[in-house]
Amino acid sequence: MVKKINPDELEKIVASIPMISASASRLLQITAQPDHELMDVVNLVKTDANLTARVLKVVNSAAYGLVSKITSVDRAVSYLGEQVVVSIAIENCAGELLGKELAGYEAAGGELWKHDLRAAIAAREVVIQSGADMSPDLAFTAGLLHDIGKALISDYLRGTAPEAVEMISSHDSLDYLAAEEKLVGVDHTIAGYALAQAWQLPEELAMAIRYHHEPAQAEEIYRPLVYAVHLGDSIAMMGGYGTGSDSMRYKLDANYADYIQINANILANVMLTVDTEFDKLSESLSDSGEKS
């Protein structure tokens, strides 16, 4: 019998997850503000020796193939750009959580992080290539964090994948979210939202985590971003980067069209870009981890 996650249990799970670092938290706050500048990111990175070291290691990794070594944070941050810096910061303090095996979904270690990176790039590209009026950087960050709740409930879902799959094919559950809810009492968006609150993430990110499968339920001001993540998530799964048994088993909300103008041609181009950019980004991030 599967153990259910009641509110007390959820609170316990969330409390067992290490807090994100103060600098990562600040970085997410700063970058969620529409009027921030790259200099704000530079100054933040400088306050954290660990983050500084990681940023310099990435920029000087083989993936970038620089002729001369970059030693200043200013140059490193402007060379890498905000999205790579955010990826480094999140990997630095939540890498273990996002990299873990999702046994409940029959997904190996690393699959969730790859899915998150693909969804992040796809959400950003959807914004850029559709010309939607919102920040591609924020869409990227929201994409990186959207499925964090899976890491919280996966152990409780252990052994349930065949049942969840059957519940959906027999129309007993509408999608994988509904199956999660039936099986363990809480779906991954609710669990993720609880963690987002504990981490005091900016509201935009918390909303993307909470409503990425039900974007119409988000408050109007957050909806464009939530729809961008919704599409980024679908594109990641379509491209073959899901997280195991739940892959493709979610509904597309076609009302994205109220916020994001995308046709078959743009979508094909987005998918192509995601393939290329994912290889580049994951190479630069992983490379830096191995050498010291």
Partner: peptide
């Protein structure tokens, strides 16, 4: 994905 539209 489920309930997909033509574009997707």
């Amino acid at each position: 994905v489920m309930d997909t539209n033509d574009t997707f």
